[in-house]
Design a protein around this nucleic acid. Sequence first.
DNA 1: CGTGTGCTGTAAAACGTTTTAATGCACTAT
DNA 2: ATAGTGCATTAAAACGTTTTACAGCACACG
Lengths: 342, 342
Amino acid sequence: MDQKAATPRKRATIKDVARLAGVSPGTVSNALSGKRRVDSETQARITRAIETLDYVPNLAARGMRTGRAGTIAIFSSMPTAVAAGTSRLGFLMELAASAAVSAMESNTALLLIPPIADPGAALGTIAFDGAILVEPSANDPYLSLLAARGVPTVVIGPAEPRATLSVTLDYQAMAGMLFDHLAEGGATRIPLVIGQSPRASNEVFRAVYTARCAARGIVPQVIALPEAEGERGAREALGTHIAAHGPPDAVLVPIDAMATGVMAALRGAGLDVPGKVRVATRYDGLRARSETPPLTALDLHLDRVADLATRLLVDTLETGTDGASIAAPAPELVVRLSTARS
Amino acid sequence: MDQKAATPRKRATIKDVARLAGVSPGTVSNALSGKRRVDSETQARITRAIETLDYVPNLAARGMRTGRAGTIAIFSSMPTAVAAGTSRLGFLMELAASAAVSAMESNTALLLIPPIADPGAALGTIAFDGAILVEPSANDPYLSLLAARGVPTVVIGPAEPRATLSVTLDYQAMAGMLFDHLAEGGATRIPLVIGQSPRASNEVFRAVYTARCAARGIVPQVIALPEAEGERGAREALGTHIAAHGPPDAVLVPIDAMATGVMAALRGAGLDVPGKVRVATRYDGLRARSETPPLTALDLHLDRVADLATRLLVDTLETGTDGASIAAPAPELVVRLSTARS
DNA sequence: CGTGTGCTGTAAAACGTTTTAATGCACTAT
DNA sequence: ATAGTGCATTAAAACGTTTTACAGCACACG
């Protein structure tokens, strides 16, 4: 039964095809790419030759000539890789999955680049024509590296002055929707639990939060802590906060890892959700949904966001035009049990 | 402020480096790859030249010479792309995320290949050295295509005679663990809701199920339906089943989309989970966890599975040795509310 | 002295495409 | 007739590496 390993025949090249079809390699190339007309009769001979020889073009050679790799890369910056962990990964993966199919529709393949220790060195190892950068932080190392290498890059995230291409997420709207939803039940004690790093997301949420608090005449309670402490940090911080200031009516906690901590703290304090306290977070991912009760969150339409980003990128690559900035579709509130009306 | 677009300087080539360092291109190549010794003093001159010229190797050219693309691709076969949808996607993405970091550790990038309409054509468009194929179906088109192209492929899934490389998932163990867990409460009416396509997963689950039913002297109730009907199909099928045969004690429903349908049917019939009926599914993903109540499932250790597969693949690529088959780590039961003891 | 033997280095030949400039060739318009 | 105009095709030059075969040189060994 052991089939002898088929002779490792050298793969047919474009020259072989040309010879068999009785034309020059150049003509075969044109027939393949459609860059110039070739007579329909020779066209036919060529396709026949391709079939019989089972020819498949050598992409490295083509790439060398054209200077294109036929791939785009999706990055998540995330210097503190480990801390962010699965939750952030879900966000990225949702984008990646959609980007992959959009890219494929444009005859481009998607490279999934995990957070890496030495971006500078690694970038030289990977061939790609353009990049999608997900929620870069304040002054992200990737952004400068990619710019330095002259790689067209579309940023998914906050409006980023350094980026020529972007699909901008409206953190303002997100914060507003979540806050209003929590406040509309008449809540007056609504702490904001948030990361303290200088990401746009943190800053905007904080700003909107304080503004709306002021508008409603309720006193803001900002609990900022390092992202790295995530779940545990949020649990402890909210615990001591409750001890000091008494129980809240609601909690706005954009980062889902922290939301888990918040839920634990509330359970610990014997505060029923949503009975006593209503809770909402930002990203409607695995984490928000597997909480008990599941958390109200935002549908950010990440599939469409990824699709927009990918199309923008490949368009730019193809036309060579200069950048553009597209707004992401408006987020939608997904009301779950954690904010159910009593 | 508007910085004039930097002159689009042509990128430095290895020749430029050679010239500046006063050596031949060949020597630079050797210095870079370490394939041959080069004098430490010239080595130093070369690295200096590389830095001042900001040289970064042209990967297409290198790839053409070496015949290596520096990438591996991860595929999910899934001809019926849409039907499978998000749930299956989660499974794939979990693998992909881990594979991406493992690959990167081996200086390889991971291509995320979505299900595509015309695999045969598309494969010629993408450059990769090896492939990871996730749960290929009975006679998967990809498997033959990849084999025909001579691309080393590791299969994650059932033991697959056609594959020389694989990380095998133990469906037998999975089915056994889930069944025993459901049966151990003394349940005697335990329908199996399952897909009817000839995937190994379906077949093994069915076989184990009937065997264990026989062992316990309980009568098997197999409800097989097309995967494509997924959630809705399972809901309707279980509904009519209950009408005909009365309520079950437990339901074993490996495919998570169908599990959602099963939960709906049970709710419809007024059967409390886990009070009246206990339910378990296979993949512990978004879907299982966001069910109410969340479903007992299996932790398949997909991160380790992906890591094994990736390492196996790059090892094979590097050493050129022949295939091997590795067993995936044993699955672990994750007991959730859907099978809580009353 | 003559001959082997390491050690660094080089020149030049690939690798398989795409692209550029040129070549016929058949027409049409003058 | 002559010149001009497309059109389909071709020959050959790139593209930037790696690799192969060879050369020089110093040194040790007989």
